[in-house]
Design a protein around this nucleic acid. Structure first.
Length: 770
DNA sequence: TGCAAGACGGTTTTT
DNA sequence: CCGTCTTGCA
């Protein structure tokens, strides 16, 4: 046990060894959060305070869950397979699979991803003759998910306005349709679980007694429903329930747009009368100037629980700030700097280039490609999201649950088999009339439509019959062939990649079967309950039928059903990573949780970062600031920030002011690489341009830069894109110049002070950029 | 049925 | 500017 607790700092140690009571751990970036979480679990088990089955640990991503399991098995000789460690959705799925009857779901219920959900909603709008101009499918999707994430059913929604009333009405229709088809969306997994446990006292009691310790990662990202569910499991307001151990960082809350509610942290503190609040402020990642910048910036946010990161590593280098003339030149500069870093021996994969929105990657990618530097862009389509894979999955879904209309429509005529739009419309009419699925409506069709649809049904039935005795990977292989998908893509010009992806599905199935170990005997050390065949339902002491302790899914569940839910809940890796060491390009959001030796934060301009849409939302800029905080704290040793005078966006050249965040960073931690004659921040200080010889050459001899300089030959002495300062309006950017020498007038964007047109011979302007 | 021109929209993302 | 979706035509 000593081993476990070795090398923990006092705060970490205190957190790990807290008594079995509710606790809130404020874990700063790079403070060893995952370590605390996993060590606590190991410590609880090793000291005999709880058995592995008494632990529930919840994360938001599969990656985080996997990481926890890996670290845990390295610490303890425990079979982690059946432990309740997973994502909210994964754990709810497991619960609903076990108690599908009580949850009023078919045994083989399937999970709709967002794509399927949207297409289902579009279908629903069409079938109900709803004007999709007035009630856009996307809005309805948002409405439904939003309601569910607050724990509200259609009849719980307060609908005062006609639009809301209509949406609520359609929400009800949508839910009924899902129930008919035997499908659930992501939010439904949670809501169903919540409702199941709310209504079913014995079941709730069972799990409340069972999970003595509930640990939650990234608590600041929980939405209202997730918090309600946690309260339920932890027995809030009831006699029994486990201790809730919440780990999070309010300063890293960047997902409000998808329903996350930071307020859950203080709500938790209040609701559970939390006595144990521990702050992990010791940072093991970044050097001093970087942390100072982060701390200083985030102090501009009003509503905080309060936290200041510190390090033992010394101040390190200052943050390097660069003002580029254009987005192209910014990219050029990044490349020069990255080359310098690489020459200093920093691996490419330790260099990250971050941006606020995906559109910004194009210019950088282009420049990297031209320079011949290998790079990887995070994000993009994940394996199970790709069209060809989704098609294959749809055939498998139909074999397991033919009433999944989304799956039916996806492949009924793919590859094409002469089933056209008219036929489908007729079929949909019949399904609507009888209130049954498309698949079930096929027998009602006559004539040519009837026979072509009949052939499709026969294909699916045949595949099912033929493969029912086969192991899952074999089953997948047969389906790939019998469906015609393989042949279809093999004949397509650019189909080689797709064929390869399809073939990978067989491997994915094999890997899944192996990892989940269907039908394997449970290891003896897990205790008497696990002696049953893994995955069998056993009756627990309190008389509730439950899943035995060591199985992720009930044995009655077919490997196919399990694999399909895996495909929905784990989107898989994004595109095959380039094998070689490469520069890492990603949005600031996707960088959360990662760290790099060197980080570039690019496009730090008003309108981009903070994003213009953020000023319209309540606390929007605060969230942008937290995003900036996340970006800064990704860097270990070297941090760059850049902005540019002109940028191409949506086909238009924009002249943005530098980001307000520069005004919120400590001057002494910044080092301006580009010359600023009289910067706002250097008002009382003479700054020489290029005060560092090392960066003298950075990207100035660039074609674009020259072009822009030439543009200034309008005789006014000023140039478009230039930053200026005005006594009354403050800082601004010249957006346009009209008229010639002597009579020139400039259109200047003064940000919050608005757009002004000033006569250059009259207005007193101070030059801010080179 | 399939392709091609035109309209449209364009933070951030996981499950 | 550029990718996605719809619509219209052969």
């Amino acid at each position: 046990m000593q081993n476990l607790l070795q090398n923990l700092n006092p705060e970490q140690l205190a957190a790990v060894t807290l008594p079995p009571q509710s606790a809130l751990i404020l874990a700063g970036a790079g403070s060893g959060k995952t370590r605390v979480l996993t060590t606590r679990i190991a410590w609880l088990i090793q000291t005999g305070q709880v058995s592995p089955a008494g632990i529930m640990a919840v994360t938001f991503t599969n990656k985080a869950a996997k990481e926890m399991l890996t670290r845990l098995s390295a610490m303890l000789p425990v079979n982690t397979r059946g432990m309740w460690i997973g994502t909210f959705h994964g754990l709810c799925n497991r619960l609903l699979r076990t108690h599908y009857r009580d949850a009023a779901l078919p045994q083989a219920f399937q999970i709709l991803d967002t794509q399927d959900q949207l297409s289902m909603i579009k279908r629903l709008l069409k079938a109900n003759n709803v004007d999709d101009e007035k009630y856009p499918a996307k809005d309805l999707l948002y409405f439904i998910n939003n309601a569910k994430e607050q724990g509200l059913r259609a009849n719980d929604v307060e609908a005062y306005e006609p639009i809301t009333r209509k949406f609520a009405e359609l929400y009800e229709v949508y839910d009924q349709q899902c129930q008919r088809e035997g499908v659930v969306d992501f939010a439904e997994l949670l809501l169903r679980t919540y409702e199941l446990l709310s209504r079913n006292q014995p079941l709730r009691h069972h799990y409340q007694m069972r999970f003595k310790h509930i640990l939650v990662d990234e608590f600041q990202d929980t939405n209202d429903l997730q918090y309600k569910l946690l309260k339920l499991l932890a027995g809030y307001g009831e006699a029994q329930g486990g201790a809730l151990f919440a780990v999070g960082d309010d300063d890293q809350s960047i997902y409000a747009f998808r329903g996350a509610n930071v307020g859950n942290m203080s709500a938790f503190e209040r609701d559970f009368h939390v006595q144990n609040l521990i702050k992990l402020e010791q940072n093991y990642r970044s050097h001093g100037h970087i942390l100072d910048s982060a701390n200083y910036l985030i102090s501009y946010n009003a509503k905080r629980l309060g936290k200041n990161l510190r390090t033992d590593q010394g101040q390190g280098e200052q943050v390097r700030v660069y003002e580029a003339s254009s987005d192209l030149e910014e990219a050029q500069w990044i490349i020069e700097e990255a080359k310098n870093l690489m020459a200093d021996g920093i691996p490419r994969s330790e260099i990250a280039i971050l941006y606020r929105s995906n559109a910004q990657s194009r210019v950088i990618e282009h420049a990297l490609f031209a320079a011949g530097l290998p790079y990887t862009v995070y994000g993009g389509l994940r394996y199970f999201q790709r069209a060809e894979v989704k098609h294959a999955i749809a055939y498998l879904q139909l074999m397991d649950n033919p009433h999944n209309d989304s799956a039916f429509l996806r492949v009924v005529n793919f590859p094409t088999r002469g089933i056209g739009a008219r036929t489908i419309e007729m079929l949909q009419g019949a399904a609507e009339q009888y209130g049954i699925s498309l698949y079930a409506s096929v027998p009602y069709m006559t004539g040519k439509a009837g026979s072509s649809l009949g052939a499709f049904v026969k294909l699916v039935e045949g595949a099912r019959f033929e493969t029912q005795q086969l192991p899952l990977p074999e089953m997948v292989r047969v389906v790939l062939e019998r469906s015609g998908l393989l042949t279809h893509y093999a004949n397509e010009k650019e189909g080689a990649d797709r064929v390869e992806n399809l073939e990978q599905l067989v491997d994915a199935a094999a890997q899944f079967v192996q990892e989940e170990g269907f039908g394997q005997q449970a290891p003896a050390h897990l205790g008497p309950q696990a002696q049953a065949q893994a995955g069998e339902l056993v009756v627990s002491e309190d008389g509730v039928e439950i899943l035995d302790a060591d199985a992720p899914f009930p044995a009655v569940m077919s490997p196919l059903s399990a694999f399909l839910s895996h495909a929905s809940l784990e989107a898989g890796d994004a595109q095959a990573q380039v094998g070689q060491d490469a520069l890492q390009l990603m949005t600031v959001h996707s960088a959360k949780g990662l760290e790099f030796d060197a980080v570039f934060i690019t496009g730090l301009e008003e309108g981009l970062f903070p994003h213009e849409s953020s000023s319209r939302e309540a606390d929007g800029v605060d969230e942008e600031r937290r995003l900036m905080y996340v970006a800064i704290t990704r860097a270990r040793r070297r941090l760059y920030m850049s902005f540019t005078q002109q940028r191409m966006l949506h086909g238009q050249t924009r002249f943005n002011m530098k980001s307000r965040f520069f005004d919120e960073l400590p001057e002494e931690s910044l080092k301006w690489l580009s010359p600023r004659v009289q910067g706002h921040w250097f008002a009382n200080k003479k700054t020489t341009a290029w005060d560092d010889a090392e960066f003298r050459n950075a990207g100035t001899d660039n074609k674009i830069a020259r072009q822009i300089t030439q543009k200034s030959g309008n005789g006014s002495g000023w140039r478009i894109g230039e930053s200026v300062s005005h006594a009354k309006f403050g800082e601004g950017v010249i957006v346009n110049i009209e008229g010639g020498a002597g009579a020139a007038r400039a259109q200047i964007n003064f940000g919050s002070a608005g757009m002004k047109v000033l006569d250059l011979s009259v207005a007193k302007l101070e030059r801010l950029s080179r």
